[in-house]
């Protein structure tokens, strides 16, 4: 699955400028994450058309990176996130960051994460029967 990362300054309206540009480009946002940092931020988004999103945002003067991440579908049941993290830990895979989908009609929630070894992470999760989500399914 692809994620786009957008460089944003810490000031009012900077996230909105990204989302409003995506609106203009008719790109749908599936998930969003950004963390508090003192000087600058990286807004991470999962969108339905990452390539188009990057092209449009770049033309509007943003710095944008498209990156490979993993989307894992989890049944909304107690202990499922813990279960997935346990599999990764046993595989000695380190997670850089993790966030979840905000809207997904009638489907199970998806955790998005980036690790130090995405290929290996995909392998161990598939082996454990966890469903991984592709861009096409967005």
């Amino acid at each position: 699955m692809k994620q786009i990362s957008v460089f944003v300054e810490n000031q009012p309206g900077s996230l909105m400028r990204v989302t409003s540009a995506l609106n203009e480009a008719k790109v749908n946002i599936r998930a969003a994450a950004s963390f508090d940092t003192p000087e600058f931020g990286i807004l991470r988004l999962v969108v339905d058309q990452p390539v188009k999103a990057k092209e449009y945002l770049t033309s509007k003067g943003f710095v944008v990176r498209v990156q490979d991440v993993i989307g894992a579908e989890l049944k909304d049941e107690k202990g499922n996130l813990n279960q997935m993290l346990k599999i990764l830990a046993e595989g000695n895979i380190s997670i850089g960051y993790i966030y979840s989908f905000v809207i997904r009609e009638n489907r199970a929630p998806v955790m998005v994460f980036h690790s130090d070894d995405n290929e290996k992470a995909r392998g161990v999760l598939k082996e454990a029967g966890i469903l991984l989500v592709d861009d096409e399914e967005l």
Binding site: S5, F7, F35, T37, F40, I42, V63, R65, G96
Partner: peptide, 18 residues
């Protein structure tokens, strides 16, 4: 002005640039 998108892979690479 930041122009290289490769630095957006992680906060660490941005901090390293700084």
């Amino acid at each position: 002005e930041l122009i290289d998108d490769r630095l957006l892979d992680s906060y660490a690479s941005l901090s390293k640039l700084e």
